[in-house]
């Protein structure tokens, strides 16, 4: 190599080595960059409001006031009165979640296109979200109660001689779960449906499929994963029912849901470890149901459905 003034030649004479990327590039490659700070508030919230209380409660549930670490769990499952709350709650939450999802499908299906007054109809269907549980309960008592309009109409029409009992029992809580849960289910199903390319149904039509065949063979299979997710969310909402179970239900009897059992342990007996154990059981049941549904969901087609949503 002769003497040269070119800087390129100087580089070329050095030993061959692969240039190492700057550490910033290597971090960016793994998605680590300044934008990660945007996650900070969320992380803080999750740690403070979910992880800490959860693990605190979990620890507490293993430190009962008397007996071994599992004695509060044994106490809950050993007591038929307490154990029964699981079935009571499932008996409310499962049918309510299922009905919410099933009722949303035809309405959302009809409303997926563009039509006049769509916004108004959507607002009407979604308004119940803005009502609190207490307001809903109040409305239910007024409307469905023994002297409410519903029963008065029934009696005026001589369809029944004495008021039909629709509040302060199972049905009161069930209606309340429908009223508060349906808007969520409807909005979710509507957005899943608008994510399905409408050309698919038109293609099915040109191939000779009538409306029911189009729905059953094209739209429904593509919608199923969305319905599974929707079911999980509305189920979780319904499973943690508390205010309406007290206000429009029969909290000492047929609507004594699991959250009432936890509440009584915590704030009537002041037995926090026992209440924590009940809360953990509650969480575990929700997890089991969701796992089953999501496991079934993985067997469905979950890829692209061609839409813009």
């Amino acid at each position: 190599m002769s003497v040269t003034t070119s800087p390129h030649a100087t580089v070329a004479t050095g030993p061959p080595r692969t240039p190492r990327a700057h550490w910033r590039h290597r971090l960016a490659e793994r998605g680590v960059d300044g934008q990660l700070w945007l996650l900070a508030p969320a992380v803080l919230f999750v740690v403070l409001l979910f992880l800490y209380p959860f693990f605190y409660g979990l620890g507490l549930s293993f430190q009962p006031t008397k007996g071994g670490p599992f004695s509060d769990y044994a106490r809950f499952f050993g007591d038929a009165y307490q154990r029964g709350t699981i079935w009571t709650t499932l008996g409310l939450a499962l049918p309510a979640a299922l009905l919410n999802v099933l009722a949303s499908v035809p309405i959302a299906y009809r409303m997926r296109g563009r039509f006049r007054g769509k916004r108004l109809v959507t607002i009407l269907l979604v308004v119940p979200i803005t009502l609190g549980t207490v307001l809903t309960a109040q409305g239910l008592l007024n409307f469905l109660g023994p002297t409410g309009w519903f029963n008065r109409v029934l009696m005026a029409l001589h369809l029944t001689d004495e008021p039909v009992r629709l509040v302060h029992n199972y049905w009161g809580v069930f209606f309340s779960l429908i009223i508060t849960g349906f808007p969520f289910a409807f909005l979710l199903v509507l957005s899943y449906l608008s994510g399905i390319d409408p050309t698919l149904e038109r293609a099915a039509a040109t191939l000779g499929a009538g409306w029911w065949q189009r729905f059953r063979t094209v739209t429904l299979p593509l919608l199923m994963p969305g319905l599974a997710t929707t079911f999980c969310l509305t189920f979780v909402l319904a499973f943690s029912v508390f205010p309406s179970a007290v206000l429009v239900g029969n909290p000492a009897g047929e609507t004594r849901v699991i959250s009432i059992a936890a509440y009584q342990a915590a704030y009537e007996q002041y037995d926090y470890p026992y209440a924590s154990a009940i809360a953990m059981v509650m969480g575990a049941i929700e997890l089991v149901i969701i796992s089953v549904v999501l496991l079934a969901r993985t067997r469905l087609y979950t890829g692209s459905s061609g839409g813009k949503g």
Partner: peptide, 28 residues
Amino acid sequence: PERRGFGMVFQNYALFPHMSVRANVAFG
């Protein structure tokens, strides 16, 4: 449309994404 018996090929193909090629062709 389902009673006209006309075949149609769409600009974005509009294949049923959850069905195999065979099932797509067999659909009609």
